[in-house]
Simulated scan of single mutants.
Amino acid sequence: MANAPTRPPTYSAGRRPPKGNRRVPRPMRDRLLTAAQHLEDAGHPESAADVRAVAAPGGWTLLRVKDTAESTPGTNLALTIDRELRDQLKAKADEFGVTLGSVVADGFRKVLAGKWMPPKLARSSKPKVVLNVRVDDSLRKQIDAVKDRLSAEAGFRVTQSSIAIAWMAEELGADAATVDTESAE
């Protein structure tokens, strides 16, 4: 007989059957709404509203977004920078209550508006790490469209990464080593 079963259908793999009724938890949405009601009864209406917002359909996305000013999550922009600079930038962003992605987006907008030009970043031999930030796709495409013109105006290569790193360092007050291009001329 082709493809005959090797075990009888009543075979339990040596496991003992469970004793008693299995407890099936209520759906999480119901538990969150119950918690919201308890918060409301305890005199915490703001916290109850937050829990209800998370319990709403699609409310889990509110947990991912730290900065409400940045409406779209965008795509990942990997920045290779010194470990010390990365730690400074993260600490400053936490101190000011902003996301690094929103700071980079502001820098991209300043460059596109012609209000700011990134300085040339100095190379270093310090240990490097990768810092990932999320930036809106449309801003990244606009920067890609003008980066050749920006490089020609600046006299050095301008990239999304150089703009992002220089703007975050300047805006958040971190120490990023730059090259003085004015005195070289």
Rank of each mutant, 00 (worst) to 15 (best):
K90R: 09
P73T: 10
T72A: 15
F108V: 01
R22C: 13
V111P: 06
E84N: 02
P73G: 13
R16A: 07
L62E: 00
V24C: 06
A113V: 09
A48C: 10
W116A: 09
S125H: 06
R31K: 04
D148V: 10
L32F: 07
K141E: 10
N21L: 15
R52W: 03
F96A: 07
L33I: 08
D136W: 03
D148S: 14
M28S: 07
A113C: 05
K120M: 15
H44E: 13
E84T: 04
P45H: 03
G20F: 04
L89E: 03
K120I: 05
D30Q: 12
R16L: 06
F96C: 08
K90V: 12
A53N: 00
A35V: 12
K115Q: 14
P18L: 12
D41F: 05
I143F: 03
T99S: 15
S71P: 04
R31E: 10
L139N: 05
A105R: 14
L85W: 01
A145H: 06
D87E: 12
S47W: 10
T99H: 08
P27G: 15
E46I: 12
A145M: 02
D67C: 01
I81L: 14
V103Q: 06
R16T: 09
G101Y: 05
D67I: 00
V51K: 10
R52P: 00
L89I: 04
A122P: 12
R26F: 00
T68N: 08
W60C: 06
E95C: 08
T68V: 09
E40A: 12
A56S: 09
P119N: 15
V130W: 04
K128P: 01
L112Q: 06
V129A: 02
G59D: 03
N132W: 03
V51S: 05
A69L: 08
V51N: 02
V65H: 07
T99F: 08
V104C: 04
W116Y: 13
G43S: 13
V103Y: 01
G97D: 11
A113G: 09
L112W: 06
A105I: 07
D87A: 09
N76I: 13
G20V: 05
S47H: 07
K128R: 11
D50K: 14
P17R: 14
P45R: 04
L89Y: 02
F96V: 11
L33Y: 05
E70A: 15
D41P: 00
P17G: 02
E40L: 13
L63N: 04
V104L: 02
R134T: 06
G59P: 03
R26V: 05
P57Y: 10
S124I: 06
D50Y: 10
A78Q: 15
R52A: 07
W116K: 11
R123F: 01
R26T: 05
S47Y: 00
V135Y: 00
S125N: 13
T72Q: 15
H44Q: 11
K126Q: 12
V51A: 02
E46M: 14
V130C: 02
G20H: 09
L85A: 02
V98N: 06
P17D: 01
L77W: 01
L62D: 00
L39W: 11
L131F: 10
S138K: 13
E46H: 14
I81A: 01
L139E: 06
V146W: 01
G97W: 11
V54Y: 02
R83H: 11
